[in-house]
C-alpha cells in the first residue's frame, strides 16, 4: 500500500498522485497532529467522526444543506461534509471539542446553556462553531444580521430566537 506524505512536503517538484487505496494523511485537529490511513475520498466529517472519534461535528445531510458539520478550517467556518480530509493537510482544523482550551466552557457554550438555545442538541456544535466565527467576523451587529449570517445552520427544534439571544449575550459582554 503506498502512503506518500503530503505532496507539498516532498523535496521533488513533481507532486505525487495518491490513492485510490488508503494513504497516510496527517490532520491537525484542535492543535493535535493525527496520522490516519484513509482513502482520498473520505470526507473531513467522516474522518473526524469515524476515524478520530471526534463526534462533535454532526452529520445532518452530508450534502451541504444543513450546517450541522460546521467546523473551522484555518479559523474560518466551513462544512466538513463537503471537504475531503486529504485536502486539509497543512491546514488547522478546529472542532467544537477544541473550542475552549481548558475545561472551562467557551462563553458561547455557557450562553447557549443559559438561553436554552437548543433542544435535541444535534445541530448545537455546528451552531456554536458558526456563532463563534460570526462574532469574529463582526456579523452580529444587530438581529437582522445575526439572522442572515446564522441561516446556514438549520435547527429543526427551531431554537432560533434563543440562539440569537445567546449570541447577543456574548456579543454584549465582550
Amino acid at each position: 500500500m503506498s502512503s506518500p506524505g503530503p505532496a507539498l512536503a516532498r523535496g521533488d517538484t513533481t507532486p505525487a498522485e495518491r490513492g485510490p487505496e488508503a494513504v497516510r494523511v496527517t490532520l491537525s485537529v484542535n492543535g493535535t497532529e493525527h496520522e490516519i490511513h484513509i482513502e482520498p475520498r473520505v470526507s473531513l466529517l467522516d474522518a473526524l467522526r469515524e476515524r478520530l472519534d471526534l463526534t462533535g461535528a454532526k452529520k445532518g445531510c452530508d450534502q451541504g444543506t444543513c450546517g450541522a458539520c460546521t467546523v473551522w478550517v484555518d479559523g474560518r467556518r466551513a462544512l466538513a461534509c463537503l471537504t475531503l480530509a486529504v485536502t486539509c493537510e497543512g491546514h488547522e482544523i478546529t472542532t467544537v471539542e477544541g473550542l475552549s482550551a481548558d475545561a472551562e466552557p467557551h462563553p458561547l457554550q455557557r450562553a447557549f446553556m443559559e438561553q436554552d438555545a437548543f433542544q435535541c442538541g444535534y445541530c448545537t456544535p455546528g451552531q456554536i462553531m458558526s456563532a463563534a466565527a460570526l462574532l469574529d467576523e463582526g456579523h452580529a451587529r444587530d438581529d437582522a444580521e445575526i439572522k442572515e449570517w446564522m441561516s446556514g445552520n438549520i435547527c429543526r427544534c427551531a431554537a432560533y430566537p434563543n440562539i440569537r439571544a445567546a449570541i447577543r449575550a456574548v456579543r454584549d459582554q465582550t
Binding site: P6, P15, G19, P20, E21, E39, T87
Partner: peptide, 8 residues
Amino acid sequence: TITYLRAT
C-alpha cells in the same frame, strides 16, 4: 474511489 493530486 479516487486518486488525489495536489497541484503546485
